[in-house]
Design a protein around this nucleic acid. Structure first.
Lengths: 136, 136
DNA sequence: TTTTTATATTCTCTGTTGAGTATATTCTCG
DNA sequence: CGAGAATATACTCAACAGAGAATATAAAAA
């Protein structure tokens, strides 16, 4: 009951949000992932994510400096059904498949579902990298 | 390929169109049916139907003075999948169930899928009614 | 042919939506 | 604490969407 069906469709009726939700139907992602995968400016991504959050289609968890977006842990039935439908529909379509490929590429080297892979090489929490290279 | 997924969602993201498509996922209907079932003015219905037709989500056939709307005879896969999903989602929801009930009521006395039941009692093609009562 | 009924189209108005720019907030690291 | 990175918010603007009123079209009945 928390999410109305019409709301789901309103979220899906914009291309950016549609692509975001399609990606999220596969796995959680952080904001910088979306920027890379969708090749869109930060504001645009951020505002569409805010829209989805306001309408309870996505949840967020802080992960250090990053914010990870995912579908709600307890999926309302309308959303669950539509996400399944979305996956079915996107399987054949070039643009969404390309998104998935870019997603895999962006996640390469990521351990868990977290966002640590977005870190600029800044001597961050890398296990055993060379700790001298300051920026480049 | 004829219907893009985004287009489907754009059609579904307005409440009137959502209800129209939900009804059409069950059976063809003519314009006056929608007016009765949705209790909405003629312009509103007509314009939303035009929108759906322009985007190839519905087809029309003339049936005498009436125009019958239906889902396309050869359903594109995205539309088919989404219509199934729509039915699943609407099964639990009061408003859409009420629409179906009003639909049955509006269709009571209709023979085939046509629109002959919309006729004002004007001595029309009724099998054996009193042929004298002119207007009231 | 005139009237009536069913439906579509045009116009106008108003509210919403999406994009972009600039700015703010919140972390992390040094 | 101060700098920089990640993300969010505020503001503005142009485009679009949806509602309603009036009008047009087309078929059917009289």
């Amino acid at each position: 009951m928390a999410v109305k069906l019409l709301t789901v469709y309103k979220c899906l009726c914009d291309e950016t949000r549609l692509r975001i939700l399609h990606l999220l139907s596969h796995r959680p992602l952080c904001v910088c992932h979306f920027q890379k995968i969708l090749n869109a400016p930060q504001v645009k991504i951020s505002k569409h994510l805010a829209y989805l959050r306001e309408h309870a289609l996505v949840e967020t968890t802080r992960e250090g400096a990053w914010i990870v977006y995912s579908l709600p842990s307890k999926l309302p039935p309308e959303l669950k059904t539509n996400m399944q439908c979305l996956q079915d529909c996107c399987r054949e379509s070039a643009i969404y498949r390309a998104d998935l490929i870019r997603m895999e590429k962006a996640l390469a080297g990521c351990g868990g579902p977290l966002a640590a892979c977005c870190a600029k090489p800044r001597v961050k929490a890398a296990s055993s990298q060379q700790p001298k290279t300051a920026k480049s």
